[in-house]
Simulated assay, not measured.
Amino acid sequence: MKAVHFLVASVFLALASSLASAADPSPLQDFCVAINDTKNGVFVNGKFCKDPKLVTPKDFFFSGLNIPQKTSNPVGSTVTPVNVVQILGLNTLGISLARIDYEPYGQNPPHTHPRASEILFVQEGTLYVGFVTSNPDNKLFTKVLHKGDVFVFPIGLIHFQFNIGKTNAVAFAALSSQNPGVITIANAVFGSDPPINPDVLAKAFQLDQNVVKSLQAKFWWDNN
């Protein structure tokens, strides 16, 4: 009987180990430059990739991240992403980058990256930043950042940046995914298509239904 119990335990341990490792595998080649044309692609490591013989330095290159972006929009900021869409050579490498420009009192509104942690470096200006932990604590961690400071936002947590200075600010973010994704909270909740039933939001946010409808009627700006 003990032998049977041992055998069953061994099977469960083996299964648990298998499930624990059921994540994206590490690349099995030097690079896998993404390609949309599957007819001319080579299937490598679960992805369609450009034939390595046809890969050029341009596949790993992006220019213009030094150029300030316009921030005259409702939130007062603009995000310039550099992910696998902009650099096809980032495919399978698990990293990406972004530049964020803020006008005075502009902000990168509360949002999440479902597939990446983020590390933020302030090049110019003064930013008030923070993130909120998951339920049930919902603890807020905040910090005022100055030029040269760095702050980390853990994967999936709601976070924000707010330019509290009187001059423009610039920050650069590195993210642990080739395509981190972004969910801006207000946009997703009040700007969904089609709209969420106002009864749901009125009860969830403890608001009058007219307030909810007013919020849903607004134009929710995407600063990405």
Rank of each mutant, 00 (worst) to 15 (best):
V85K: 15
A116L: 08
D59H: 05
I164M: 02
L175G: 01
I155C: 08
G76Y: 03
K147N: 06
W220I: 08
P74D: 00
V122Q: 00
G130E: 06
V4N: 09
I100R: 09
G148T: 10
Q69I: 09
K70E: 13
T167H: 04
P81V: 12
A173T: 08
Q161P: 01
I185C: 03
V150R: 04
V84Y: 06
V132D: 03
Y102M: 02
G148A: 07
H111Y: 11
S63Q: 13
I158T: 14
P74G: 00
D24W: 13
T133C: 07
Q123N: 14
N179P: 04
G181N: 03
V122M: 01
F6Y: 13
I196H: 06
F48T: 11
N40V: 14
F151K: 02
L93G: 04
C32L: 08
V4Q: 11
V211W: 12
S72R: 14
V33D: 05
P195A: 03
A23I: 12
S17Y: 09
D208K: 13
N138T: 05
N45Q: 03
G130H: 13
V11C: 15
V11W: 12
A9N: 08
P195E: 09
N108D: 13
S72Q: 11
F219K: 10
Y128L: 09
I196L: 06
N138G: 08
P180S: 09
D199I: 05
N83C: 05
P154K: 13
K213F: 03
L201M: 04
F31M: 06
K203G: 07
S176C: 02
S117W: 10
L28W: 04
P154M: 09
A23M: 07
D24G: 10
V42W: 01
L19E: 13
P110Q: 00
H159T: 02
K203Q: 14
T142C: 00
N210Q: 15
L97M: 15
A171V: 04
F12S: 11
V200Y: 14
L88N: 14
V132T: 14
L140G: 07
K58M: 14
N187E: 01
L201R: 10
V170W: 00
N223C: 08
S177L: 08
V4M: 10
F190L: 02
